[in-house]
Simulated assay, not measured.
Amino acid sequence: MKRFKKALKIFAYLLSGLFIMLFGLVIVLWLKSPGTTDPIVDANGKDMPNSIASIEKVTLGDLEQTLIIRGADRTKPVMLFLHGGPGSPEFIFLRNTNSAIENDFVMVYWEQRGAGKSYSAEIPVESMNLNQFISDTKELSELLAKRFGKDKIHIMGHSWGSLLGILTAHQYPELFYTYFGIGQVCHQYKGERISTEWAKEQAVKHKDKDAIEALGALRFPDSLAGSEAWMDYLPIERKYVMQFGGGVTREMKGMWPLVMMLLEAKEYTFGDKMNYLKASMFSTKHLWPEVINTNLFREIDSMQVPVYIFQGIHDYQTPYALAKDFYDQLKAPQKAFYTFENSAHSPLMEESERFNSIVKEKAVESE
């Protein structure tokens, strides 16, 4: 009995210690989560007088949504950035990998309907569709042009954002100087087949028995499959695409680095951070069937704005070869396709210096 009481006492101490430690971690995370953004400063740490650094609310399609706006000079060209996912805002990742782009543009990082700081459990599920997102993008583009005194703005989309961006620019070319697509989505159903076969080949090449077994057990969803089938499929397939260097970045083999960036981001409140994954799952669940079933080869053969596509040669989330095929058949007043030899899905983060140089050059040419 004495031994039992002693063991129970030790267990109680350990449990109390664990609780105190977890409570401490929550407090630290809370303190790191004020929901504000730092001012833009010069080399001496002084605020740049014509800069802009703000977190703002805007109503789009009758729903309040969040913008993070940052730029060293508010008179510079305005760039609306459309994040990937669906439902995965990228501001925090760009701030860690490519904040320099804010020197050349007023960067508007829009946290889309149902994502990140724009997530709410009250969002009508019926509003989570591609047409509504295109409408939101149009409305926001008009607001930004008016606010910053511009005739037009530039639009940049990454991954899911590239699908949303090119469709919006196609429907409303009068709003945009240029369209920049990164990790271009064009026929994602076909892309997923390419991605899966590549992952299987890599598993065999690396003699990875776990990967061979896991990928071999997957049943590729048919073209009419609903969200549930894809939500079961994608986490496993993406795990190995990332492991073999074809995912978010070529070097990133797991999601932990992104999680750490999220936890450190002061622009997000504690609640924002807790909701980030939930919002991503919510958005993917409702939007993924449209992503899969949209085929730009059939829907877009020409654009009325300049089109510039940036693709990592190691990208197997939105496969390089498929994006190049789409680009080759596309007509536009000006167009160019840029291959990034050391990148997977995110050349704007992996080779940011070259990426920024090209974007700045093409933006200046178009204005």
Rank of each mutant, 00 (worst) to 15 (best):
W230Q: 04
A265P: 01
T97R: 07
P89A: 03
T37V: 15
I309P: 04
S120K: 03
M349A: 10
N131K: 08
F326R: 03
T59K: 12
Y179M: 05
A336Q: 10
K32V: 12
L15T: 13
H206D: 15
T137W: 06
C186I: 03
H170A: 08
D104E: 15
P306M: 00
F340T: 00
E139R: 02
I313S: 05
Y327H: 14
T36L: 10
M274Q: 06
D315L: 09
G45C: 11
S88H: 06
D38H: 07
M128W: 01
I10E: 10
G71W: 09
Q311L: 09
T66W: 10
S16F: 15
A214S: 08
G216R: 00
F93P: 00
H345M: 01
A323Y: 04
S141Q: 09
K324A: 14
K209Y: 10
D136E: 02
P34I: 05
F326W: 12
F244N: 05
H345D: 02
G246R: 04
W288Q: 04
R193K: 14
S352Y: 12
K266W: 08
G216N: 04
D328I: 14
L277Q: 13
P347M: 02
V58G: 10
L22F: 07
S280V: 06
M242V: 06
W256V: 15
I92R: 01
E228K: 09
V125E: 12
G254R: 07
M128C: 06
I292L: 07
P347I: 00
S118G: 11
G165P: 00
R219A: 13
K146E: 15
M349W: 05
G312S: 08
K5Y: 13
K138G: 12
D208T: 01
I358Q: 01
N96C: 10
S159M: 03
A265N: 09
A53H: 04
P173N: 01
A12Q: 13
G181D: 02
G116M: 11
V204K: 12
F270V: 14
